[in-house]
Design a binder for these strands. Structure first.
Lengths: 120, 120
DNA sequence: CTTTCATATGAACCTCTATTCATATATTAG
DNA sequence: CTAATATATGAATAGAGGTTCATATGAAAG
């Protein structure tokens, strides 16, 4: 499927190689769409600290169990989180460190803007 | 609750200090929402290479000038891009390197996933 | 088995947002 | 001044996505 010649190219190479295929752009936008929702962001922040079952996340966010489950599915489909069963409960956890990296970069962008003046 | 002993100082500390204020979460989600659109992602990729005026971006993406201008405004309001006037044309450019970092992390997450089995 | 607890899921509803269309603003040329 | 070019913007439309409601699935207890 992929005819690329990269083994592990730094992320910045995407800039040098011109416009990537539409499919990649679509996938990228799709990934960031996941982060672009307050509920999902709260879930991710919750899981930054520790693994949690659905009930715990539901209580933490003060939302309905259904809404949480729906968003957990979205997050899991994007492989940002994983889960395992323990008896009747299901435990969710962060899948990898990209979540922390991505959110961290976003955090920096936002907080840096706070020190500057708005010259628009 | 928190039984972790991690000790990094960086933006990732946000993970340790518990759930941040709702306002920050909202701002973060809002920032990522910007990246969660194919048109805006294409614009950003275009600007990875070089500064471009509105007409050039419009031609590159093959969309209407109005649609592009609307999205350029969204990107500029989020301070992801900047612009300057040169005669009648207005040149747009990336505002800082957070854009590259954030998109790069997302790119890595996606491409790494390609080596694994796809279970959706 | 049936019941209870924990989570998942499909459908409907509603809000949000990206595009289009028409028009406005700004700069330069004549 | 008017005309032409380049970009911006407001309103309306249409589609996507998040929450709710009702229900289904799955595991353990009685």
């Amino acid at each position: 499927m992929s005819t690329h010649t990269h083994d592990h190219h730094s992320a910045l190479d995407i800039a040098k190689n011109g416009m990537p295929k539409d499919e990649l752009l679509f996938d990228l936008a799709d990934l960031f769409k996941i982060f672009g929702d307050t509920t999902r962001m709260k879930i991710l922040f919750s899981l930054f600290e520790e693994e949690l079952c659905v009930r715990e996340i539901t209580d933490l966010l003060g939302m309905t169990q259904s809404a949480i489950s729906h968003q957990l599915k979205v997050l899991k489909d994007s492989r940002l989180i994983g889960n395992r069963r323990e008896g009747k409960t299901i435990i969710y956890f962060l899948a990898d460190d990209h979540v922390r990296s991505i959110v961290g970069q976003g955090y920096e962008h936002i907080t840096e803007g706070m020190h500057h003046d708005e010259n628009v």
